[in-house]
């Protein structure tokens, strides 16, 4: 499997949502490769298909109703968000394997920083001592996946009090910073996410070269 990487830095949620929709269409038409988008969003609340406004406590942040699975979540500075746009048809990855693989990438990355994280049955995402370190919510259209995961690095966890994350108490959420007692480098985590994504998905990163020969 070959994937393109797109690091969008800090980008508005709505803008990246549009990019995702565009990429799903382009992936469907085989105009692009499978792609992993990495991004950090300004404060925003998104509601998955199970989400209702009841789980939005604060009105301070913009709210998006989106097509991914799951309930309410918060994205904001200090959180690394990844959107794998993958053709499940071409890679022959089924939706459950996709979720398990993404969890594996996150568990390995946490482990690279000395954090032992794991899975909890029926609760996708990754967990450390009963607290949630990363959330997962995926959508599949035309057998192309989009949306993805959100890993808390140095996220201001108080902001989760704006919602009931996936219907749970906000205190359920944790971050690498909280666990380690110090901030982690965004770039280093990003590097490890990419490395582990390559390993777990058996992928090579294509630079979408525009190549010439003689």
């Amino acid at each position: 499997m070959r994937i393109s990487l797109l690091d969008l830095g800090l980008r508005d949620y709505g803008e990246v949502l549009k990019i995702q929709h565009k990429f799903v269409e382009e992936r469907r038409a085989s105009k692009i490769l499978d792609t992993l988008i990495l991004v950090e969003h300004p404060d925003v609340i998104t509601l998955g298909r199970r989400g209702t406004m009841e789980n939005v406590v604060s009105k301070d942040f913009p709210v998006y109703f989106i097509e991914r699975g799951g309930d309410a979540t918060y994205h904001g500075p200090g959180q690394l968000v990844g959107y794998p746009i993958i053709s499940l048809e071409q890679t022959r990855i089924d939706v459950v394997t996709l979720v398990r693989n993404i969890e594996e990438v996150l568990i390995k990355t946490a482990s690279d920083f000395g954090i032992t994280a794991g899975r909890v049955e029926k609760k996708p995402g990754i967990w450390v001592d009963g607290k949630k370190l990363a959330s997962i919510g995926i959508a599949v259209q035309h057998w192309i996946s989009f949306h993805g995961f959100a890993l808390n690095l140095n996220t201001d966890l108080k902001k989760f009090y704006a919602i009931k994350p996936c219907g749970m108490e906000p205190s359920t959420m944790t971050s690498m910073q909280k666990i380690l007692g110090k901030k982690v480098s965004f770039d280093n985590v990003k590097k490890n996410i990419i490395k582990n994504f390559k390993d777990v998905f058996d992928a090579e990163i294509a630079e979408e070269p525009i190549a010439l020969a003689f």
């Binding site: 998955g48 298909r49 199970r50 097509e67 991914r68 699975g69 799951g70 939706v95 459950v96 996709l98 979720v99 029926k122 996708p124 995402g125 997962i136 919510g137 995926i138 959508a139 599949v140 259209q141 035309h142 996946s145």
Partner: peptide, 8 residues
Amino acid sequence: MTEKVTVE
């Protein structure tokens, strides 16, 4: 929807 994945 299954396991936080929505599939069309």
